[in-house]
Design a protein around this nucleic acid. Structure first.
Length: 791
RNA sequence: GCCGAGGUGGCGAAAUUGGCAGACGCACUAGCCUUAGGAGCUAGUAUUCGAAAGAAUGUGAGGGUUCAACUCCCUCCCUCGGCACCA
């Protein structure tokens, strides 16, 4: 017998597959469509990670099985290639980022092919391809046209090391997600996208999709909807009582508006707190006003907060700080009593109205503050009706999405600024706005994008008045390209992403929405939320057909992270990174695939066990030996027949439920049983075994399929069908319990009645000994399973 | 603090309309085979007692429901993930 040589076998079959149309999705096919998507990678210089292999293999198994079941499967792959590591590498080595990207994507693709992944490479996409980002820019323009993209001077999270503005999502523990440097506050004009306008729908429409509960919960939590009321607290100016006579244009008195989710606690409100950034505080402390008794003190406090880094402001266990605003008091509308005003940084400017009514008896933070500043705490106060005071309103934690980056390696924001006409979008016919070649990729010290140094490129004509104008030099964040990539795969099946959108209507109608989308939990409040939002927007403006619904992904699953041996995180610095190339070289791709699927539950974090992988290799070799047996039985062993049928059911169901570990374990049980009953194994048995294993270990099964002189590719065969009649066991082991404890086992016919079972059981010596001298109180009988005698 | 997931042998784990706890794999032990083994084959492997048959105990802790609980209910502890001065 020839020895199992994965290196040779695997190359051979990969060549056959990738030169065929086996993995190609067919536009307009009558077969049931199945759009299976796995998050496309950022092609880093490190190459594929074993974690990539795990989720790709998992979905590959599903894709292969569904194809065998006759479905028209779209299983595409591409590259999310804009990003900082590539840019940093380019800066260091002086190579253009596009050159680095090309090298990296080629390596990734080669590695994926080495694993035998059944991607439809004819639809490959790359977010850095100008034909691709023309659309990313087009979407931005649509957002602008609908008033959902705007430029505003905001306090941004600034990483002094990367010299880049960060979105809230990119700040972890007050530090830059990428480099770990402490994030500072910096005021800067930035493009923002109004995702907040979609907050409510992004929560509500979660009811329409099949996502894991933890994903839904995390998104809801992140959006953070809370219902409450806005209540006006009238002001009483003590220092300058004349102001109390002043009325606004509609005759109203000056008041502070607060937001609360508990208007019923208003009788317990003993003071108000305004955030340092509150507009009223700014006005009251400016040069034109003189209503406060301690203007300088308040001003100094506001200044001190402004320069405090974010981490210090939110530091855990930090004592609350603030100052009283003297010379003005507020009137509690419920009690009519005067209460003091404070400015304190524990109240956030961005949330609600930037001001709160403090109820120290009911709120932990207010209590802390009240205790520090010796403010009255009313323990037992009258509860108000929810709607007795104020106006009902809703607030969200979600903020608008900061969409500007001061970097080179990203999509240029397709906007032109004209002194006469203001911000104007680049006309569609001029898309894409291509990234110009620059000499230096470094961000500038002023925080401007490197593109700003390209004076020739920056100069532009205003699309509206044709006067002199300048281009926007900021680029988009690296989430921009992945907002719509699931549409790009569909479009690639029609043309190479040419305009206009109308071209793709039929294809989109056929393929969308994505039937099953797998990705990482770390994207739940980032990419997954962003892309849902952008899809809803495109749906709203009719860019995609209405018939496909307002959610891009029908079903979402997520994979667990692979940890290094011993359960620690894999990282270069710890030196515990497993390189899939090495594993393929040593054991073969089929072994790697099997092991990664067998190591544990797919959605769970799991440590790599360098020894464990040998089990997967042994399994393949066992199959190899069995399939090379010289003669086959004519008639199969009844037990083996039954087991095979049960395994067909188990494997089919387990693949759909992503219980790959138990699917493989049942295949191992089957193979072990084949080995034990080798004389009674038929060719048909082996054929079915190969079909069942083929999605998991596609190379070896092709080879054995060919050796057995079967026609065509194993991967192109029909998936075996479970036969209920054959799967039925005739003889079963019946458990005999006394008082709920197992005392005996009896083999008998599956359909035996209680009387028959009792007769047999009561004759057994073991049972006789147990019941001797005792009275039988009760007998519980579960047909085909168990009998329990209570004595 | 809030939300979510989880806790089972030496290790990864399996078992859910409540019905044999530990399937499958790794590791380990003994034996066989081999010039050799980091290869292969056979047997064993939760704990305690026992030569064995067998018995008792056992799924984070404690209580409860039930003929029967890893599974359901109550109280508590621990680990991991996410969010967090969001009023």
């Amino acid at each position: 017998m020839v020895k199992y040589n994965p290196a040779k076998i695997e190359k051979k079959w990969q060549k056959k597959w990738y030169n065929s149309t086996l993995f190609k999705a067919k536009n307009g096919s009558k077969a049931k469509k199945f759009y299976l998507l796995v998050e496309f990678p950022y092609p880093s210089g490190d190459g594929l990670h074993v974690g990539h292999c795990r989720s790709y293999t998992a979905l590959d198994i599903i894709a292969r099985k569904r194809r065998m079941q006759g479905q028209n499967v779209l299983f595409p792959m591409g590259w999310d290639a804009f990003g900082l590591p590539t840019e940093n590498y380019a800066i260091k080595k002086g190579v253009h980022p596009s050159v680095v990207t090309k090298k990296n994507t080629e390596n990734f693709k080669k590695q994926m092919k080495n694993l035998g992944l059944s991607f439809d490479w004819s639809r490959e996409i790359n977010t850095t391809d100008p034909a691709y980002y023309a659309w990313t820019q087009w979407i931005f323009i649509k957002l602008f046209e609908k008033g959902l993209a705007y430029k505003d001077n905001i306090n941004i999270n600034w990483c002094p090391s990367c010299k880049i503005g960060l979105a809230n999502e990119e700040v972890v523990d007050g530090k830059c997600e990428r480099c770990g440097t402490k994030v500072e506050k910096r005021e800067k004009k930035q493009w923002l996208i109004k995702i907040t306008k979609y907050a409510d729908r992004l929560i509500k429409d979660l009811d329409l999709v099949d996502y894991p509960e933890r994903v839904k919960d995390q998104q809801k939590n992140w959006i953070g909807k809370s219902e409450g009321a806005e209540i006006d607290f009238l002001l009483n100016f003590k220092k300058d009582p004349k102001l109390n006579e002043n009325r606004g244009s509609r005759g109203e008195r000056a008041a502070i508006k607060v937001f609360t989710t508990r208007p019923d606690t208003i009788f317990g409100a003993t003071y108000l707190v305004l955030s340092p950034e509150h507009l009223w505080v700014q006005l009251a402390t400016d040069d034109n006003h003189n209503v406060l008794e301690n203007k300088e003190e308040v001003k100094a406090y506001v200044q001190s907060v402004k320069h405090k880094p974010e981490i210090e402001r939110i530091a855990e266990g930090k004592e609350k700080s603030g100052v009283e605003i003297k010379g003005v008091v507020a009137i509690n509308p419920a009690t009519g009593k005067e209460i003091p005003l404070f400015v304190a940084d524990y109240v956030l400017a961005q949330y609600g109205t930037g001001a709160i009514m403090a109820v120290p008896a009911d709120d932990k933070r207010d209590k802390e503050f009240a205790e520090t500043y010796r403010l009255p705490i009313i323990e037992n106060y009258q509860k108000a009706g929810f709607e007795d005071f104020g106006k009902k309103t809703v607030n969200y934690k979600l903020r608008d999405w900061v969409f500007s980056r001061q970097h080179y390696w990203g999509e240029p924001i397709p906007m032109i600024f004209c002194g006469q006409c203001g911000w104007q979008p680049v006309p569609e016919k001029d898309l894409p706005v291509e990234l110009p070649k620059v000499k230096k990729y470094q961000p500038t010290d002023t925080g401007e994008s490197p593109l700003s140094a390209m004076t020739v490129w920056v100069k532009a004509k205003c699309p509206t008045c044709k006067g002199p104008a300048v281009r926007e030099t900021d680029t988009m964040p690296n989430w921009a390209g992945s907002n719509w990539y699931y549409l790009a795969y569909v479009m690639r099946g029609v043309s190479n992403l040419q305009f206009p959108m109308a071209k793709y209507r039929e294809a989109l109608k056929y393929w969308m929405p994505v039937d099953w989308y797998n990705g990482g939990m770390e994207h739940t409040t980032l990419h997954l939320l962003y892309s849902r939002f952008i899809f809803k927007f495109l749906w709203d403006i009719g860019a995609v057909p209405q018939s496909i619904g307002s959610e891009p992904y029908k079903k979402r699953t997520s994979h667990g992270v692979i940890l290094g041996p011993g359960g620690v995180k894999m990282s270069k610095s710890k030196g515990n990174v497993i390189n899939p190339d090495d594993v393929v070289k040593q054991y073969g791709a089929d072994t790697l695939r099997l092991y990664e699927m067998f190591m544990g539950p797919f959605d769970q974090m799991i440590p790599w066990d360098p020894k464990g992988i040998i089990g997967a290799r042994r399994f393949i070799e066992k199959v190899y030996v069995i399939a090379h047996k010289k003669t086959f039985a004519k008639k199969g062993n009844a037990h083996v027949n039954t087991l095979l049928n049960k395994t067909i059911k188990k494997v089919s169901e387990d693949i759909e439920a992503m219980k790959f570990n138990t699917a493989i374990s049942s295949l191992m049980v089957l193979v072990n049983s084949f080995s034990e009953n080798l004389e009674q194994v038929t060719k048909e048995h082996i054929k079915n075994l190969l079909l069942l294993i083929s999605p998991f270990a596609p190379h070896i099964t092709e080879e054995l399929w060919q050796n057995l002189k079967y026609k065509g590719l194993c991967s192109a065969q029909k998936w075996p069908v479970f036969d209920k009649a054959v799967a039925k066991e005739e003889r079963v082991v019946l458990i005999v319990q006394i008082n709920g404890k197992v005392r005996d086992k009896q083999v008998m016919n599956a359909g035996s009645s209680q009387q028959d079972v009792e007769k047999i059981v009561l004759q057994s010596e073991k049972i006789k000994a147990w019941i001797a001298g005792k009275e039988i109180k009760k007998v519980i009988f579960v047909p085909g399973k168990l009998i329990n005698i209570v004595i």
